[in-house]
Design a binder for these strands. Sequence first.
DNA 1: ATTAGTGCAAACTATTTGCAATAAG
DNA 2: CTTATTGCAAATAGTTTGCACTAAT
Lengths: 140, 140
Amino acid sequence: MDLEKELEEKRALLKEKGIVLTTPRLIILEYLLEHRIHPTAEEIYQALKKRFPSLSLASIYNTLKLFTQLGIVVEFAIDKDKARYDINTNPHAHFKCLHCGQIYDLFNIPLPNYEELEGHKILMAQLYFYGICQRCLKER
Amino acid sequence: MDLEKELEEKRALLKEKGIVLTTPRLIILEYLLEHRIHPTAEEIYQALKKRFPSLSLASIYNTLKLFTQLGIVVEFAIDKDKARYDINTNPHAHFKCLHCGQIYDLFNIPLPNYEELEGHKILMAQLYFYGICQRCLKER
DNA sequence: ATTAGTGCAAACTATTTGCAATAAG
DNA sequence: CTTATTGCAAATAGTTTGCACTAAT
């Protein structure tokens, strides 16, 4: 998996759109590419502040909002209390373990792909499953 | 559609489970049965406080949490900022209009119905669609 | 009468915002 | 050098909680 290339690709995309390549933006992007765990803003903050102590939570929120608007990340609400962010923008289903809280990708479940439904124009879909994950099942 | 009967049914269910039938619980239940608009706690509060001025938002939250735990309502997170509540506990898809914010039921879209996926035990699913609703499309 | 539940206010959590200081080009 | 962006602190919105008072059985 070519992480360097992927990072370079996103960098180019930002530049192309006239977005200034600041340190917070680059390290958050890098973090998202390296840690595909659907992190919350807080999780990103905790992970990065060691390496970059001046980084603020506000900048993380600002950056994630920017990335979402640019279509580089997808913000989703599988947790009702906090937003999670996914660098993988290909539509796919998610599973949340009600025991450990971890979010898993489900790449093999087809997502319904409608253009319109009952007269409504469909722009995107989210499919969430909730239950107990494989790992937690084993630990019982 | 027999609302009286439905209310009586839920009342019986609460009683059976040993839940005290207080005024807030009864009027919230009645409101949910009569207004199937997936209201937020605040919407319920605004609608009911005229008729019942002593009602508090905290009681609405408490009651909704109780109902959710009892399986009488389903709490869902199609909006990332606030929870919505559905008295219809039969699994079905939802559509949210990104223009007017309204939530619609989609009863004709089949929900994937897995018992397990990739080793995870599946307990429930939510399918959300986002776009522009029929009504907003017409107003353009 | 007894216990469970309500309503208030305060607390808490996630997120947003205003603005002076800072860094990118 | 100029403008966009950051980081801080304060503000905001939704939700939860502790506790004295009240209502249900």
